[in-house]
Design a binder for these strands. Structure first.
Lengths: 210, 210
DNA sequence: TTAGTTTTGTGAAAGTTACCACATGGAGGG
DNA sequence: CCCTCCATGTGGTAACTTTCACAAAACTAA
């Protein structure tokens, strides 16, 4: 079974496995079974094996998976064996926090450029260059950046996304509470914190909390 | 068809419909069909009707849905007809940004207390009180807060979650890159920005970008 | 009242995703 | 070398989600 249509849930779990494998490696564990991995990250063992089977055969029957190897295999499959340059658009509260967020680096992402309508008085971390929005298309095109984060006001998100697409960006992580509509060719993922909280309160309300 | 087990995707879409209904209301549109609503938020009309059917009959055949009514119905179903007090734990980069994020208020959430190990020199917005972590369990219990956001370092997330659960919190929105494990009775939702970016690069890699 | 139009609510089909259960094959011991 | 043990890889099935398609209902107009 090899690379056809991979469900999104599977890809999300790969990322989860990766994190878990990193922990195992830190603990000095060299081999892990799908049963143990499943226990650790709360996924059914058969599920794990099926997920991995989309991409090849990584395990050894009767033994399990070699932690280091599997980790590298998943990274390769997900395109994480190289560093990705990422552009961030919208250096407000959230944008600033994202720029300073250490987690991205750990995953092999480098937020190397940021854009805003207002560059005065904005403080970006070292290694990141701040440009005025009017330079966005040019800079992104010149650097060949393929991934961008949108953290602008929701009223501008759609427009910014379209501009990013024109500049050659192929993947967008959108924090604005809007479902961005783009012609295909660009992958958009939405992180909507308002919705997340609402899903939470829904379940609390169902269970009669409060 | 009425309240049994509601799929999580359905709940997420309810939140989406709500946002769309707000826009319709602002535009002065009073009635909307599932077809039009579906077009606007990119969801199949039958899907919308099925989603709503879990909770009752809100439409009028041959007419559609009254925007204002449906909005109120969805808000009621999701428990959004009242304000929820929310506690935030971990006032670092991300925590600070979340405290200042205006989006939560719009959805009827009030971040009224924040906790951190280090309260000196932290600047929280008006209307929000900052306490030392050692006070967390007491303050949350006294105020009867049921919802919390975790934005601490991942190494502390599990422990904080357990403490929150002891304090009576029933819903947790976790921004730390860890799958929190709690005995049932508490709903946990994870927002993992690293994973989101990884899913993005996976699809770019598949499509041969770069 | 009746005929015509429109859009809901929903049973059933189609399409996905998760899980079970077991044959398969590698590893190690005797 | 063979036999046993063990965990993978996978066919089949169950569970769940989405979509189709149409009867039922409401509104309109004559």
């Amino acid at each position: 079974m090899r690379r056809f249509k991979i469900p999104e849930v599977t890809v999300g779990r790969l990322s989860l496995y990766l994190r878990c494998l990193n922990e195992l490696e830190e603990e000095g564990i060299e081999v892990v079974s799908s049963a143990e991995l499943g226990r650790r990250c709360g996924v059914n063992p058969a599920q794990i094996r099926k997920d991995l089977a989309y991409f090849g055969e990584f395990g050894t029957r009767g033994v399990g998976y070699y932690v280091k190897e599997l980790k590298e295999d998943i990274k390769r499959v997900m395109g994480l064996n190289k560093t990705w340059e990422v552009a961030l658009v919208g250096v407000g509260n959230l944008g600033t926090a994202l720029l300073r967020y250490k987690g991205f680096q750990r995953h092999g992402f480098r937020l190397s450029v940021a854009f805003d309508h207002q560059t005065e008085g904005k403080d970006v971390p070292e290694g990141c260059e701040l440009y005025h929005s009017s330079e966005m298309e040019r800079v992104i095109r010149e650097r060949g950046i393929k991934v961008a984060i949108i953290s602008v006001h929701y009223s501008q998100a759609q427009q910014v996304a379209e501009e990013l697409a024109r500049a050659g960006v192929k993947g967008i992580l959108n924090f604005a509470p809007v479902r961005i509509q783009l012609s295909k060719g660009v992958v958009v993922r939405n992180v909507d914190m308002g919705t997340e909280l609402e899903i939470l309160t829904f379940y609390l309300t169902m269970k009669g909390t409060r």
